[in-house]
């Protein structure tokens, strides 16, 4: 907010499909809603999706690779959010492959970007190879997204090992996504403590499984802006914690299990109908 450099935070997971891009969109939007100047960078070259989640896919003129290869200035490539003027997106190139991005170039872009921003949120591609290395190179903080499933937790463990080895990484925390309180209660799913114990990492937040996420993705409006959504509330809390506030964790137990039952009931009805 002042002339201080912004914080560069990478959102990563190892495994694909656990909700990295959704988390990026929602955390960035959540921080912007709080009044911070936020830029998102999609580093998933060739498989960009953050623009879709933000509903900005039709506004892209230039992209990250155009900036790197000198076809445009950084500010020209930044796509302003529809609703929040203090939020912008630096999209990935869709027609190139990941070899077009190099670590030193990424570092340069992030260095320039964080001069004007409070937060730079970097959405990392899946995997642990070059794409991941490009995404983390400029970050001093990381948010690891995991679902309470074996494959996701295993891949997150690899990622945490890589983050640990990185000297500039001062802070990394876990977001547990797609949590189903009902299944955790009946011991059919690893619970929050199991995951934290196995990965020995600090918790940033818990996001419940929520069908509304699919609807909000369809509309291109991050769920963090939907007031009566539980997942939205979870992301609002996460954004506040990222900003340094002390926010208690959501009690998913009571409302969610009740809501699950209702949703299950209607879900089953509509399937049989």
């Amino acid at each position: 907010m002042t002339n201080k450099e912004g914080r560069v935070i990478v959102i990563t997971s190892g495994k694909g499909g656990v909700g990295k891009t959704t988390a990026s969109a929602n955390i960035a939007t959540g921080l912007a809603r709080m009044g911070y100047k936020v830029a998102m960078i999609d580093t998933d070259i060739g498989l960009r999706n953050l623009d879709i989640l933000m509903g900005l896919e039709n506004r892209i003129v230039y992209n990250l690779i155009d900036v790197i290869e000198g076809r445009c200035k950084l500010h020209q490539a930044l796509v302003k959010d529809k609703r929040l003027p203090n939020l912008s997106l630096l999209p990935a190139a869709q027609t190139r492959d990941k070899s077009a991005l190099q670590q030193d170039m990424m570092l340069k872009v992030c260095d320039e970007l964080k001069q004007d921003m409070d937060f730079v949120i970097v959405d990392s591609p899946a995997g642990i190879e070059q794409g991941f290395q490009n995404a983390v190179v400029a970050a001093s903080e990381a948010i690891v997204v995991v679902t309470p499933e074996m494959s996701s937790v295993r891949d997150a463990d690899r990622i945490i090992g890589l983050l640990e080895a990185k000297e500039e990484m001062i802070n990394y925390k876990l977001v547990i996504n797609r949590v189903r309180p009902g299944m955790m209660k009946s011991n059919d799913m690893m619970d929050i403590d199991d995951v934290l114990d196995i990965l020995s990492i600090k918790l940033l937040g818990i996001v419940p499984e929520d069908q509304d996420i699919i609807i909000s993705t369809n509309k291109g409006e991050p769920i963090v802006s939907v007031d009566d959504s539980l997942a939205g509330q979870a992301y609002r809390n996460i954004a506040r914690r990222v900003a340094g506030e002390d926010v208690p964790y959501l009690d998913l137990d009571a409302p969610a299990s009740w809501m699950d039952k209702v949703k299950d009931f209607f879900g089953k009805k509509s399937r049989t109908a």
Binding site: R154, D157, R158, S186, N187, M190, D194, I198
Partner: peptide, 19 residues
Amino acid sequence: QSSKKDACNRLKLVLMHDR
């Protein structure tokens, strides 16, 4: 049976080898 224990135990073994 609760499958959570299975998941935890299998995962711990896999991670020991990984780490």
